[in-house]
Amino acid sequence: MSSLKPLVFDIVRGSCVDGPGLRSVVFLKGCPLRCVWCHNPESYEVTPDLLFDAERCRKCGNCLEGRPCFPGARRVVGQYYPPSELIELLLRDRLYYEQSGGGVTFSGGEPTLFMHYLEKILPCLQAEGIDVALQTSGYFPFIPFASRLLPFINRIAFDLKLIDADLHLAYTGVSNDLIKANLTALVSCDVELSVRVPLVPELTATRSNLDGIALFLRQLGIEGCEFMAYNPSGLSKWKQLDRTPPVPLPEEPMTRAELERWCAYFESRGTHAAKA
């Protein structure tokens, strides 16, 4: 667990795709996983990252002389918000949350890395009556999480990526034991739980993986999950970070038809899947 100042790499407001209603989404930087298909690779590290967007570079040479890059081709991502400032910003849209049944979503990276930070924020949001959602990889120590954060969270979107332990280790860098245990534990907690499965062609979107996930969910008594179809929007970020993804990733988004096929397949395994 990091005791560093948590950095935010993006705040999106008015989102309709990160939980019910209109939501503000806070993306925290830093993640214990290293999913090879990550579409926010700038969220890997807890420290600031330098992004370079070649298309915006005017070749003015400022950066070489240690001066600021005014065109914004070279920019540092990762900004610290003192809790009070972040709360103030999140509360600005409260009327929108109330009207639409929305709220605030914490995402990442892995937001649970920053319990000491979130525990200053979540209670305030709860006191203001704001619905709080968490998007997590499921990789966190359960006991502190359950005592320090869970009481202030209304809903959790829990990622389940690969059911096979070896593949999980190979493609995300960590074992899925903890993740599976956490999901199992959360089922009996007082929180609205939804499971999300990223569909990455040939990596997670395979019959055997989905068979396994379906089975696991059934065992837990979870009725269904949400599929997140692969889209290549992360590729440009890899480029801007001047890194290459460890495995080659498709350039095209997963088609609607393909997604439908996987949904149907999943249904045929007796578990429901929603399309995100």
Binding site: G14, C16, G21, L22, L95, Y96, E98, Q99, S100
Partner: peptide, 13 residues
Amino acid sequence: KRFSDVIESYFRS
């Protein structure tokens, strides 16, 4: 619904 919600919130602000 979403469109209408945004208008309601904007007006209430």
